[in-house]
Design a protein around this nucleic acid. Sequence first.
DNA 1: TTTATTATCATACAAATGTACCATATACGA
DNA 2: TCGTATATGGTACATTTGTATGATAATAAA
Lengths: 205, 205
Amino acid sequence: MPKVVDHDKQREKIAEAAWKVIRSGGLAQATVRNIAQEAGLSFGAMRHYFNSQSELLRFAMNLVSDRVKERIRSMRLFASGFNMEDAKRLLMQLLPLDEESTLEMEVWLAFSAKSLSDPELKPRSDEVYDELRKVMMDIVGAMIRTETAKPGLDEELEAERLYALIDGLALHRMLRPGSLSPAMMEAVLTHHLNSLCDKEGSDRT
Amino acid sequence: MPKVVDHDKQREKIAEAAWKVIRSGGLAQATVRNIAQEAGLSFGAMRHYFNSQSELLRFAMNLVSDRVKERIRSMRLFASGFNMEDAKRLLMQLLPLDEESTLEMEVWLAFSAKSLSDPELKPRSDEVYDELRKVMMDIVGAMIRTETAKPGLDEELEAERLYALIDGLALHRMLRPGSLSPAMMEAVLTHHLNSLCDKEGSDRT
DNA sequence: TTTATTATCATACAAATGTACCATATACGA
DNA sequence: TCGTATATGGTACATTTGTATGATAATAAA
């Protein structure tokens, strides 16, 4: 029998090489040859793992969302009922606060932009968008039902506001890291969450 | 003397053709040949207006920001002192609410994503980011100084929060237009501005 | 009308890229 | 040890793309 190589592990290794290429050179540099070199493979060997470039890129995009989902799922949230600390921790997972998540989100931004004109990528982009929107609805909904939030909030409106705030912060951190520090990102998020709860208006963490 | 053609007008016409190509096919389709066809020019004629593709794309990107700046400048804001209606009108200019601004913002998103790995585009991207950040600071600052806002607000934090909210809404509208209506965008913005002003918490337009 | 200057077009050419194909190396089972 | 299935490497080829070059058309001034 043949040499034993974990086919799926190799595909992930190649996809992660694609991430690095995309991050440093953009999607325009995400050629089969460049990705092969980054992965330490020969150009011809790529064919054994991906039948086409678009299949490779689609896999690389899906791997980003898989990783993010996994990270969120592994948090074991709300084990003892809803609480704001867990909600905040979850939302912070959606901000580029460390090297790993920054890489993933920059790659995700590249794919999202491309998905606007690439039907192959659109379904997954939409799927992730909708899932995160659901997360926002769950958080805001729980805040309202547990009366953590101040009364009278519009669930859907607040969910969209929170979602836009998160993605706006993430976008700004990627575009202008020197202008928006991780501490400021966290402060804005904390302040926003407090503003949804406080009956008066003072800040608490 | 030669045939008379407004050189600058032609450059803008070509740049707008580039916008259309980018919107329908992404930056990957923004080839000199495709743009020439969209502009109704021959491939060879392009050379008379742009010496290289990167010069063309840089011009097309700059034209987006010029148009947005011009639109904001022409609003003649705060003619009779600061007021919330003008502030809201200004902020709405930064949301993709009609066909024209949607086109411009989708193109801007493509260029912004590319600027992360293209040193040629980064300066202008940063410049626009900083200018808009200043707009946010001006608005929040004016709200505070005129006591339109409730007391105790952190100017820088609220500016970043407002900025992130605007860009997040714009991004979501582009990525998932079916999930975020113009009416909802406006409602979220209105609600957010009110939340900065109202001493109690009720909504007013 | 003639001419010079500009606009436009057509084409050539090298480089890059995706895909396909074939050769070689490798390792596990018989 | 040997053979087979798999991994990997090398290369050919058509296509696309940016750039460069030369030819032609058009127009306004002399």
